[in-house]
Amino acid sequence: MTFSHAFLSMLTRNRLKVRNINRRYATPRVKLSPAVRWTLLILRIYLLALVVLLGYKFFTIVSQ
């Protein structure tokens, strides 16, 4: 009982903490010039591609 209670309170505390962090860093400070925008977009695509590859690999391992 007490353990689960403590665990729950820790969760709420940390959720607050995370919300604070999200609020604090809500606006990126780096000037989003077209070059930077493009770079970040390419990064997202790159990551997506990697995740897809990893997922595919995982799928093939599991299905074997």
């Binding site: 962090i21 860093y25 809500a26 400070r29 970040l40």
Partner: peptide, 10 residues
């Protein structure tokens, strides 16, 4: 990174 690029990248 958090400061410069916001929460997603952070």
């Amino acid at each position: 990174i958090f400061e410069g690029f916001g929460t997603f990248w952070g």
